[in-house]
Simulated scan of single mutants.
Amino acid sequence: MSQDLRERAHDVDATLRVGKSGLDPVVDELRSQLQDRDLVKVKFLRSARGGTTTEELAEQLAERADAELIRTRGHTAVFH
């Protein structure tokens, strides 16, 4: 994982939010956004987390969207 991507991830605004509907509604949207931009930041709302962690949800989303998880911090994750 590139240090450059981690540094650039800091300045990216969250363009997707995962809420109570879970990951299903955002998988295709994440794929689509990654075609247009290098990095996409996703915010995991409290209603999406339930009994799981942001890290677990981010890993699941990365796998389902064929994306690379760059980092998680707090309740957000950055994908490439």
Rank of each mutant, 00 (worst) to 15 (best):
T76G: 02
L69Q: 09
R64I: 05
E29F: 05
Q3L: 13
R49M: 04
A65Y: 04
L5I: 10
E7I: 14
V40K: 09
R37M: 05
R31L: 00
T76H: 12
G50N: 12
L23R: 02
L45E: 09
D38K: 13
E68S: 14
R6E: 02
K20A: 04
L57S: 07
R73G: 13
A9M: 07
L45K: 11
K20E: 06
E68I: 13
L30H: 01
A14Q: 00
V18P: 01
G50C: 06
R17C: 01
E7Y: 15
L30K: 02
D24A: 13
A48K: 02
E59G: 08
P25F: 05
T52Y: 08
E55M: 14
M1C: 04
S2H: 13
A58S: 09
L34G: 02
D36F: 09
G51D: 11
T76P: 05
R46M: 03
S47Y: 07
G74E: 04
R49G: 03
D66N: 15
G51T: 12
L45I: 03
T53S: 15
V18H: 00
A48T: 03
T52W: 07
V26E: 00
V26N: 01
V42N: 08
V12H: 06
V26Y: 01
R17P: 00
K41P: 02
E55D: 15
K41F: 04
R49S: 01
T53G: 04
R6H: 13
G74Q: 03
A65K: 08
D4I: 10
Q33W: 04
D66T: 14
T15Y: 03
